[in-house]
Amino acid sequence: MALLRWWRAPLWLLALGTGAKSFADNPLIGSERLNRRGLHARRVKLAHRLARSRRRRLAAAVPADWRERFDRDGFVAVPDFLPAGQFAALRDSLLTASLPAREQQQGDTLTRRVPIGPALRRRFPALDELLDDPRWRGLLAYVASTTSEPFYYVQTVSAGAAQGEPDPQIELHSDTFHPSMKAWLFLTDVAEESAPLTYVAGSHRADGRRLAWEQARSLGIRNADRLSQRGSLRVGESELSALGLPRPTRFAVPANTLVVIDTYGFHARGPSPQPSVRVEIWAFARRSPFLPWTGLDLFSKGPFRRRRAPLLMGLLDRLDRLGLARQHWRESGDKRPLDP
């Protein structure tokens, strides 16, 4: 059976030039022999060099203090991001609306998402105004190191809302080996006990200590946990000091705070000692890390630009029906974001 897999060898080789990250699914990425010779560390190093180059070309659209904070910490937190009236209109209209939702359970946490497409933007003018705000677009593009349109969702995180093992997202981790972006504009206050986002400041930098850690993890990946084997490396808080990193920052913040992070940095969903709910506008961007240009993305143009999230959900549904991929997000009917 092992021999039958090798017809895919050309695909595995081509994947080295993309954002493919799974040590388990690609024998070249997971090869101890190749990683001992520096394959994984070199992919990390090159991806970060190209991201720095792209960010330099995107810097002019971002206020200097935001850039400085991001370059130092790997995140930017902006309180009172929207004018009070615009935020109130956005929050009140979305929190009271019944929207076609998808849900996924991870451990004891239930996440609900509503993909944002043209119909939702027409229905909620304050949402449309936010997503076209030059400050929003400039900052998200800088952190993502690309002008490719992010995927946008209305997201509800209900921690402790289901029976199950502990949520795997409460473990500090890096999403992938290269810079990418996630953003949260919180529509509700986030309390300390409401599973706040946590982030290790400075962990977005691929410096010497981090590269040595990446190299060591790539060599011992066969003995690692399942999510690390799939390319989302887990790290213990006890390891942070050896990497020259501080304890994580917890974003227990009021509503109307925007937080944007580079998900190469170590981050997690904070633990919730009791059931809790938070609602946010959530954005995500991850493009192939080895492209030197900032744009030239067909799917960020014309009719595709505002349909990215609904189109992705539809594609995953189709692949699931064909047995080619698993759709983790299941339809849950029309619901308001704060519905149990």
Rank of each mutant, 00 (worst) to 15 (best):
A2Y: 01
L3Y: 03
L4T: 09
W6G: 04
A15R: 13
K21M: 10
K21N: 14
F23Y: 03
F23E: 08
F23D: 04
D25T: 11
L28F: 00
G30N: 05
E32Q: 12
R33K: 14
R33T: 15
R36S: 13
R37D: 10
G38F: 01
L39F: 00
A41Q: 13
A41E: 15
R42L: 15
R43G: 12
V44F: 01
K45W: 04
L46P: 13
A47G: 15
A47E: 03
R49L: 15
A51M: 09
R54Q: 05
R55Q: 14
R55M: 10
R56K: 04
R56F: 00
L58V: 11
A59I: 03
V62E: 06
A64Q: 12
W66L: 15
R67A: 10
F70Q: 10
D71L: 14
G74W: 06
V76Y: 02
A77P: 07
D80Y: 01
L82A: 13
A84I: 04
A89W: 00
R91A: 13
S98Y: 00
L99A: 05
Q105A: 12
Q106W: 00
Q106D: 14
P115N: 10
A126T: 03
L127Q: 02
D128T: 01
D133Q: 05
D133V: 02
D133A: 10
R135Y: 00
A144H: 01
T147F: 00
E149W: 01
P150N: 06
Y152E: 11
Y153G: 04
V154E: 08
V154C: 12
V157T: 10
S158R: 13
S158M: 13
A162L: 12
Q163I: 12
Q169M: 14
L172I: 03
D175A: 10
P179C: 08
M181D: 07
F186P: 13
D189G: 10
S194V: 05
S194W: 02
S194E: 08
T198Q: 15
V200Q: 09
S203I: 05
R205I: 12
G208E: 15
R209G: 11
R210V: 07
R210A: 06
E214W: 01
A216T: 07
L219K: 04
G220Q: 06
A224G: 07
R226M: 07
L227C: 03
L227Y: 04
G231Y: 00
S232A: 12
S232F: 01
A242W: 02
P246H: 04
T249Y: 12
V253C: 08
V253D: 06
P254F: 04
N256V: 08
T257G: 06
T257L: 05
L258G: 07
I261Y: 00
T263H: 01
T263G: 02
Y264A: 12
Y264S: 13
G265E: 07
F266C: 05
F266N: 05
H267V: 02
P271N: 10
P275Y: 01
S276Q: 03
S276L: 03
E280P: 11
W282G: 09
F284Y: 12
A285E: 11
F290H: 09
L296N: 08
S300L: 06
G302T: 14
F304P: 05
R305V: 08
R305M: 06
R307T: 14
A309C: 06
L312T: 12
L315S: 07
L316K: 14
R321G: 04
L322Q: 10
L324V: 14
R326W: 07
H328A: 13
W329S: 09
R330K: 11
R330C: 03
S332P: 07
G333E: 07
R336S: 11
P337C: 08
P337G: 08
